[in-house]
Nucleic acid binder design. Structure first.
Lengths: 230, 230
DNA sequence: CGCACCAATCTTGTATACAAGACTGTTGAG
DNA sequence: CTCAACAGTCTTGTATACAAGATTGGTGCG
């Protein structure tokens, strides 16, 4: 299902969303250049593109780092998503003729099913990634490439946060919300879907303990935990 | 009022929005490097950042070009703006306590006054630029940096189109819409403002003759018109 | 023992060199 | 006269070299 990334950018994003690269991780140009078998030039290009997309940031002459959204930034990202995603759904209601493509509801239903499985079997990374993907797929069904791209980057940021702070039961509740949204969409009740989407994103945001500062030593602890390879 | 751009990116954007760089204009790396007194490296960085923002695009081994949104892309950009801007205004209504900052309405009113003057005295570039700026200022007042940045780039694209296709009377009507929106905001009627915003953006979009293909020879014609310098 | 200072090393920032492809103008055949 | 082939020129794509600043580890003074 997951296609292998063809560009450095996609590869890094995929690693971040998959939980293999944690927020705050340093991305050395030389290291990446070696990994991808290219010169620093192309790595720098990719990093700068990711920077304008808000995925990484650069600290002058120190290196590139996966963004660590502050509590304030995280809340702003959630608000932006709420505005856009509810706006999209309400826009569907505005024009009587407008609607989602015929197979959209079926696709979304299948996706929710995938979420369900990941909740039981998968680990935090794939679970959180799938929960974020639901919103991307919904945006895709809406059919506006600009909004899809925007939501992809915005969701990446909130996913980054959710992965650190979301509990198992909150993840399950999220998936239930998704199922409810799909049901409303199937009924053509876009305003209802918009309302539930608004509640859903608020719930996810409120469920995260953003006040609790992340553990800056998490990476170190993991490495130093018993059983870790030298 | 207009601050001089400190970066290559801002300089190019400012030139585009000011009408000094038309859609489709080629931006040679060597030329820009000479103009800004830097090497091609930094010019390329700026171009790639602008590319991820959708302002320019690259044609392999041919050069960088100011984007020329197709009719389809233009409509999508307008739709995205409609979704986001109306979503923002409705979000203000959602929470009873929420509101714009105290001085926001006054600022916006002053801006509309500026638009009025530009309609009479200014040329198409500054006029169109100001009409777009209204929306940026409104987004800024909303207070979400993500949405402000997103709308800045999105508005840049629609502005690009408006500059080519908008008539004088449509520009005046736009400014009237802006004034109406400010009035509704002053009354705290955010839903009404959202509705008017929706109509406004639709009106602007409908006013443009997007079906009419742009004249690819416009630049040439201007140069070859009688009285042009050799 | 603690702390400030300093040198060595490492990393990014910027420029330059060279390779690869695209366009242009010419030339020659039909 | 028309058109196809080709060489020359120009432009971007990629790699490499060097400069500037940051970090780290050591050293000596208090």
């Amino acid at each position: 299902m997951t296609q292998l990334p063809d560009s450095i950018e996609d590869s890094v994003i995929s690693a971040i969303l998959g939980g293999r690269l944690r927020p705050g991780t340093r991305l050395g140009e030389a290291k990446l250049a070696e990994v991808y078998g290219v010169s620093r030039t192309r790595v720098r290009e990719a990093m700068m593109r990711l920077e304008t997309r808000g995925i990484v940031h650069v600290s002058a002459r120190r290196g590139w780092f996966v963004v660590e959204p502050s509590a304030t930034e995280a809340r702003a990202a959630f608000q932006a998503r709420r505005v856009i995603e509810t706006g999209m759904l309400r826009d569907l209601q505005a024009l009587p003729g407008r609607s989602l493509p015929g197979d959209a509801v079926a696709h979304l239903r299948a996706h929710v099913e995938e979420e369900r499985e990941a909740l039981h079997t998968g680990h935090v990374g794939s679970r959180t990634c799938l929960l974020g993907d639901f919103h991307i797929h919904l945006a895709h069904a809406f059919g506006n490439a600009f909004l899809t791209d925007i939501l992809r980057d915005l969701t990446a940021r909130t996913t980054l946060v959710s992965m650190l702070y979301q509990s198992d039961q909150d993840a399950a509740a999220s998936s239930d919300d998704h199922a409810g949204i799909v049901t409303l969409l199937a009924d053509g009740d876009f305003v209802g879907a918009a309302r539930l989407m608004d509640e859903h994103i608020r719930r996810v945001e409120d469920g995260l303990d953003l006040a609790a500062a992340p553990d800056p030593l998490a990476g170190l602890r993991e490495i130093l935990s018993p059983g870790a390879p030298a």
